[in-house]
């Protein structure tokens, strides 16, 4: 089964691992017949998608679970939500094809809404300023960052994975932008993108709005209400 859930509000301050534990407890509270791994310390067969940083919200989180016996799908979303902390809501649960690709590998692009703010009164995070910075960044042929990977410092061009940045408009404290980032060949964190747009910008509200799986020219969300998309998901 694939579970689509959100993480909004105060609960955004818990970690990815905490979310996993909350789900495991919710499954037990609702007495769902989970499948367990074999071995000395059996773990429930639950696999999570891309991690979400502490403090970031999301409308599009996913996890896959395996049950030991057939479970009716329809009441699941409400039942699991009831046992979860406020702010983590299960939107939908669908049955997966047996050979569906693991979420971590399958997801190829992610969309974000990122609020840019400033805490220095002299700087400016208004939509006009942000718009110019965005244009400059997108015009650049390359955007080389120094990054530490496996303990070694190296450089990486993150420009190819930045697919789209749109200035949405002002917020109370700054400007909201919409961003689409590919997850391969490298992934970019919202904080890195913010720094690339301007070192005076700080991270305000950050929300993951969508995740995409792209294969063979077809693009779909890990769960979609459109039955055709679900079929495609199964076929993958």
């Amino acid at each position: 089964m694939r579970v689509w859930f959100t993480k909004n509000g105060k609960v955004r301050f818990i970690s990815h691992r905490d979310v996993a534990r909350a789900f495991e407890r919710a499954f037990r509270i609702e007495a769902l017949p989970l499948s367990f791994t074999q071995g000395f310390s059996p773990r429930p067969k639950v696999s999570f998608g891309l991690a979400l940083s502490v403090g970031h919200e999301s409308d599009a989180e996913y996890l896959d679970i395996e049950f030991a016996e057939t479970v009716p799908v329809a009441p699941l979303a409400a039942a699991i939500t009831r046992a979860l902390p406020e702010g983590i809501d299960v939107v939908e649960v669908v049955a997966l094809a047996d050979r569906a690709a693991a979420l971590q590998e399958a997801v190829t692009a992610v969309e974000w809404e990122i609020e840019l703010i400033i805490d220095d009164g002299a700087a400016d995070a208004s939509p006009t300023v942000v718009h110019d910075r965005v244009a400059a960044l997108l015009d650049a042929p390359a955007l080389v960052l120094e990054r530490v990977r496996k303990g070694r410092t190296g450089t990486e061009d993150i420009r190819p994975v930045i697919r789209r940045i749109t200035t949405l408009g002002p917020t109370e404290r700054g400007t909201l932008i919409a961003v689409e980032l590919a997850t391969r060949p490298t992934s970019v964190r919202p904080a890195e993108l913010i720094a690339a747009l301007g070192t005076e910008f700080r991270e305000g509200r950050v929300r993951r709005t969508r995740q995409w799986i792209e294969r063979g020219g077809v693009r779909y969300e890990p769960i979609a209400s459109d039955p055709r998309s679900v079929l495609e998901a199964r076929a993958s």
Binding site: K10, F13, I14, V54, G55, E86, G87, E203
Partner: peptide, 13 residues
């Protein structure tokens, strides 16, 4: 809370 260690210490719920 954005600037502190383990912000979930302070959210209750």
């Amino acid at each position: 809370l954005a600037g502190v260690e383990k912000p979930a210490r302070y959210i209750g719920m």
